[in-house]
Design a protein around this nucleic acid. Structure first.
Lengths: 147, 147
DNA sequence: CTTGTAGTTGCAAATATTTGCGCTTAAAGG
DNA sequence: CCTTTAAGCGCAAATATTTGCAACTACAAG
């Protein structure tokens, strides 16, 4: 990714090098906060805003994807490590992985019908998983124990 | 929606009545902030957190959908007013409306293959629209004027 | 190696949304 | 009506992320 950045005319600052390294070394997904922790460990004076700004840049250049997997934190993933999606259960928070191919038909149809290039490289799709299908949403009075 | 709320055992407070009214009277989408403004005009001491909590409740009960249409604000939409989706251009911010049917095949396949009930009632799909297809992302040096 | 300049950063404040907590009140029962 | 009590509220603080601005620095040119 660093090559890509400098070839595109962006400056290679130590902050960027470390942020890029953190994203590349992450096994799968990584949050801005985790990146920040890693970077601060070596450069104690870097700021979170730099992390966010760098991630925004990487996303704009198509080098990383940004995905909301629920739970308040947005996750980042290097594009070069392959595309995939996630089914996120609203009830239990379970995350089921999904192959990229699952959204290809949709991407195609949006392209043909609307000439819209949908960014469907790394989606978090909300819903309810098999295990939570039976359960009804808990009402105020009857909050006994719905296990 | 108020009927639904009271039948489910929730209290009908003046705050809720007004928040529900604001959502129901909105022509299409409405943000938490807009709802808050409307409600505060009559009950000057209501708090934003009440607006958010009520919207969360309405969403949990399946009465409203919550959709990120870009631009920092999440938008709410009453389910009873019909389902649809939006193609959101990352470059120019344009929003193209999409019929609910466009995502039916995906919903079906997720249901059959993963027994996952995907909540695809009101999506914001990011991408690049026709008008912005040509333009390349602006690099630092060459930021002449691409407007 | 020195310098000029635009790209970057740090900082602090703004924004959008969430949450803990003690006080208030809707609504059921007497 | 009056009482009771848990649902709901206001408030203030926390969280995640963004942004304006002045200071800083990577790097191309001299």
């Amino acid at each position: 990714m660093t090559d890509e950045l400098s070839h595109q005319g962006y400056r290679m600052t130590p902050q960027r090098l470390m942020i890029v390294a953190a994203v590349e070394n992450s096994s799968n997904h990584i949050s801005a906060d985790e990146i920040y922790s890693q970077v601060v460990a070596k450069y104690p004076n870097v700021n979170v805003s730099t992390v966010y700004r760098t991630l925004e840049l990487l996303e704009r250049l198509g080098l990383v994807t940004k995905t909301d997997l629920g739970g308040g934190r947005v996750m980042y993933h290097p594009v070069e490590k392959g595309h995939h999606h996630h089914l996120v259960c609203k009830e239990c928070g379970a995350i089921i992985d999904l192959d990229e191919s699952a959204l290809m038909p949709l991407k195609e149809s949006l392209l043909h019908q609307y000439q819209f290039i949908a960014d469907l490289r790394h989606l978090g799709i909300l819903g309810v998983c098999v295990n939570c299908r039976q359960q009804t949403p808990k009402k105020p009075a009857e909050s006994q124990q719905g296990e």
